[in-house]
Write a protein that binds this DNA or RNA. Structure first.
Lengths: 237, 237
DNA sequence: CAGTGGTCTAGACCACGTG
DNA sequence: ACGTGGTCTAGACCACTGC
């Protein structure tokens, strides 16, 4: 044990985060007001506020003056804004369509086990999809998801364009953050054919691992992208 | 006028930010303590604290219990941590060397004017450099900087490996943030020769615009990178 | 030891959305 | 009119730094 040296507001923050993670507080539902929470937890209202402000900054809560504090609901628009950073030549965000090419269930590969923290006996669901822009394919994605966490996912047809809001609605799993590793690769022949480019053409490869509220990896996604005059935007600082 | 509707703590934040930008508060120097600032500005200590906390979160200040509040000093290590996100295959951050190939002064091109917000008559300093890793070149950079903001920069020889800490020390200009646009491009023959890869090999292209504290663009940098088994890491969420 | 920032409390007033 | 979060104030105690 030994470690209760964290400040009060941080303890309050963790308690509330755990209530959201466990589903005791559901997306879209209202929290008790600051004074009620303060009384329940035996701290002052200012301490509760500091915790609520921190969780709001983490995108877990939404606060509206006069209305209350609510558990943030993942929406498709929100997911695109947070996790899809590709822009066209005019600096407009690209909002792609997706078409599932294949959804399969299989034993996890070594790479999948490493990325998703799985035992080598675990099973994954693999989704192959093609994203289009102006009805032309520009991006191929291979998505791997632990089958245990998302039972019967492979039977959902069609899968929604944005998965993360669906994860929250259907499985109560909220995406907290992701890491993307970007590289430039040469298109192999099958990828080139699917994207209608020459074999060997340079593609932007986005290798993403996605983490839930408890920081467990819940998705590994590799995208190959023929971005044309567009670009991937990263903000630093 | 009309707009003094911002909360007090935000006004305090802007006042302090402007003092840093203008050089009235120099990097490394200590601020007055919270009570002194509160008295000077006619607000309470809690309001000053909220402003100081916000500026600390923006990396502009450093606070140490028992010591005081200081204007953050840009260091080379800090610059690399914030603005250089390339990792090798083992997940270790790459810390490159740089060698200047050419430093020239010229009238700004149309692209430079657009990126740096310059008049078409303005002049820029262009730096071409080669970055190496284990003594082998893996990255070519072309950097454009408004000549007006950095007088006599072209006479500094050699330029330091990390420019931003030098900008702060030598010119009092602090880098606040940057935007990077990433694409995959095919190596042209000269780039391929310099990086020792085949012509047409896929390169990661990083097109960065850097902004000062007052949000003026102060640098445009295009890097072509043969990243090998490494990657560019972006954190989302 | 004195001074600093970090934390916590308690209470006030306001602007806003809802009914 | 009421309840909410947003802001602001005032003061307390603590841990840490530096002398």
């Amino acid at each position: 044990m030994a470690l209760d040296v964290k400040p009060l507001y941080a303890q309050v923050r963790e308690i509330l985060r755990e209530r959201i993670r466990s589903g005791a507080l559901k997306p879209g539902s209202a929290l008790p007001n600051e004074f009620a929470l303060a009384h329940e937890l035996g701290v002052s209202q200012g301490t509760v506020r500091k915790a609520l402000d921190a969780l709001t900054a983490e995108q877990l809560l939404v606060r509206t003056p006069g209305r209350g504090t609510f558990v943030r609901e993942q929406t498709a628009a929100d997911v695109l804004f947070r996790f899809f950073h590709i822009y066209n030549a005019r600096g407009e965000r690209i909002l792609p369509d997706s078409r599932d090419v294949a959804v399969t269930r299989a034993r996890a590969s070594a790479a999948e086990c490493a990325r998703l923290g799985l035992m080598h006996t675990a099973r994954v669901i693999r989704i192959q999809r093609q994203r289009t822009r102006d009805a032309r394919p520009f991006m191929l994605e291979t998505i791997s998801i632990p089958a245990d966490l998302f039972p019967d996912l492979e039977r959902v047809d069609p899968l929604p364009n944005t998965l993360y809001d669906f994860f929250q609605r259907a499985y109560g799993i909220t995406v907290a953050r992701a890491e993307e590793r970007l590289t430039a690769t040469a298109a192999d022949t099958t990828t080139a054919a699917a994207l209608d480019v020459a074999a060997g053409a340079p593609l932007l490869c986005i290798d993403r691992t996605t983490f839930a509220l408890d920081d467990r990896p819940i998705e590994w996604r590799v995208s190959h992208c023929h971005i044309g005059e567009g670009y991937y935007l990263a903000r630093l600082g």
